[in-house]
Design a protein around this nucleic acid. Sequence first.
DNA 1: TATTGTTATACTCTATAACTATA
DNA 2: TATAGTTATAGAGTATAACAATA
Lengths: 141, 141
Amino acid sequence: MQANLTPPTKRQLLELLAHSLSAHYADFSAAAASAGLTAMQAKTLTVLRGTPTSMRSLADTLTCDASNVTGIIDRLEKRDLVRREVSPTDRRVKHLLLTEAGEKAIDIIRERMEQVQAGLDRLSGEERNELFRLLTAVFPP
Amino acid sequence: MQANLTPPTKRQLLELLAHSLSAHYADFSAAAASAGLTAMQAKTLTVLRGTPTSMRSLADTLTCDASNVTGIIDRLEKRDLVRREVSPTDRRVKHLLLTEAGEKAIDIIRERMEQVQAGLDRLSGEERNELFRLLTAVFPP
DNA sequence: TATTGTTATACTCTATAACTATA
DNA sequence: TATAGTTATAGAGTATAACAATA
């Protein structure tokens, strides 16, 4: 099964990564759009799922300026997908919480990432293991 | 070497893919910024490298509306990285050509994708082969 | 009639700088 | 003083709709 080909050059791998990135982003954007959201809004919801987060730490996670987060959260809050709550221990910070509608939106988006889902379905358990290992090596957490 | 672990769930792989691609995008953006360009401008230059392209087909490749391409090319042309040329065979279409400065910008960007380069160096030839195969399966051309 | 490219418009995302209210 | 969050501003990317020139 394993051929002894010359390995792809670094440039070829970079091009494949660029292609994969585009395909994944297109799929994610389409899934987000099907829930009436932009890619950034959808990503923000997934970041907020689980861990309680402040505006500051959200900006760090999204690697964007804190001033952007104000607008992003404004728009999500206006649609009742997210709530701001002033921290009881430090009145400067605001905790960000997903509403139920926000949780549901995430589920919808994840289900509708059809291209990537189909792509992953093409892999065996063994291959998924291997892809996981290799991606972790290239892009450490 | 090969452990018999349970394979990662699809959700775990989706999260790892999101993380990997976002790391790659951050690296690409930083490389583009080092040449004074946005990620979109840098991507446009790489699309234009090699194949002669019309505004229309560029819009298809970038999967965005044709009206956006006008602005993107306007900004690149203003900086002498790209030239428009009316097609001799169909006066409606414009061919897009990289200038020498545009070619140089691409080289600079490719050299500076250091994070990913370092990540790829962590893989053996055999592993690069395998990663190439798996990503192609998940994100077919 | 259909297609290529542009303009006008409106919205989102982006960074910078200046501000406020807390600590 | 330093930090969390906001506002104001300007630039870039995005889609939609209407348009001129050409096929």
